[in-house]
Each structure stands twice: as structure tokens, then as C-alpha cells.
Amino acid sequence: MELFGIWVAALLTLCIYSFLYQDNPFYRFAEHLYVGISVGYGIVLSIHQGLIPFAFKPFWAAVTGESLIGLVKLIPIGVGLLFFARLSPGHTWLIRYPIAILIGFGSGVAIPNVLRANIFEQTRGTIEPFAAMHAGTLSGWGVFEAVLMVVGVVCTLTYFFFSVEHRGPVKWLSKVGIAFLMIGFGSAFGNTVMGRVALLIQRADFLLGDWLNLIS
């Protein structure tokens, strides 16, 4: 069964790589099968690891009287069931209820936490090296890097600041911001190349090693 599995995996891998020559029925076969299997896997996991522990078990406990406090859980279960209204064209508007609760919840938790994690902490990180500078513990190179960081952050933010027209000094700050962004995107590109090539190497390792046994 294991050997058969390796052959199936290898042939499907080759079906997908056939797209590099041109679009063809083998690729389309693998592509559609992949979508189906992935969605099927997602459904099973969501049922067994989501719906059953969070909805079915509390529901069953409440219905059988095992946990009367669990009766409260029937409300969110009922709200969640409203997602099924998507299946009835006349009642689709009912899915707004669970969506509104989830969106309200998400927005509510986001405000204080994003503020602290991404605004306060990142601002602190930008200013903190200057405390070390003041204490005299930062080397000359460290001072240069600290100044470079502030210049980079301020100029990048200026580039994204559209409430004033980008003219005069603002234009120049924004241009420096673009330079920093380009370096940021360049490094992201360099790292992305590494990531994508690693995926290719892993597939080649599978084909040459596990399938063809060409690697010792």
C-alpha cells in the first residue's frame, strides 16, 4: 500500500509539473482532484475538530440533562446554525446574525490588542535605542543604525500619508520612504526565492529519492 501510495503521489506530481510545458488534461485532472480532496479534508477536520467538540457535545450534554449550564450554549449553537440559511435563497439574510457577532467580536478584541502589540510596542522599539545612546552604551555604528531606523520608519509612514500633498520636503521624505520600501521588498523577494526553491527541491527529493531510489 505504501509503495502504491508513492507511485500515486509521483504520478500526480508529474501531472502537475506537466503544466510547465503547457496546460493539458493531466494537469487539469490533478488540479481538480486536488481541490476536491483538500476541501473534503477540510470539511472532515472542521466537523471532527470543530463542530463535534464545540457544538454537538455541549448540545448533547444539554439535551440529555448531563449539564444544565450547557443549556446556555444552545444559544450560540442556534446562532451558528443560521449559517445554513445560505442554502435557502429566501432566508440568506439570516447569516448576517452569526457574521455580525463574529465581526463584532473580532473588532472588539482587535482594538486594544493591536494598539498595544503593533503601535505601542513598535514605537517603543523605534525609540528605545536612543535610551541606550543617552546612557552611552551604544557604539558609533549603533548610533548610525538607530538614526537610520527612525529615518526609515518616518519616511515610510510619510509615503503612506495621503492627507497632505506630496510636495517640497514631504515629497523628499516620501522619496526616501520609497527607497526603504524597495529595500524591504527586495529582501522579501530574495527570501521568497529561497522559499519557493526549497519547495521544488523537496519535490525533486521525493521523485529522485522516495520514488526512483536514485539518492543514497
Partner: peptide, 11 residues
């Protein structure tokens, strides 16, 4: 509540 409602989004 959010934990209970979210898996239904699968539908």
C-alpha cells in the same frame, strides 16, 4: 460563543 459559532462558517 465565538468558538462555538465559528466552525459553522464551514457551511
Amino acid at each position: 460563543w465565538a468558538l462555538i459559532i465559528s466552525p459553522f462558517a464551514l457551511v
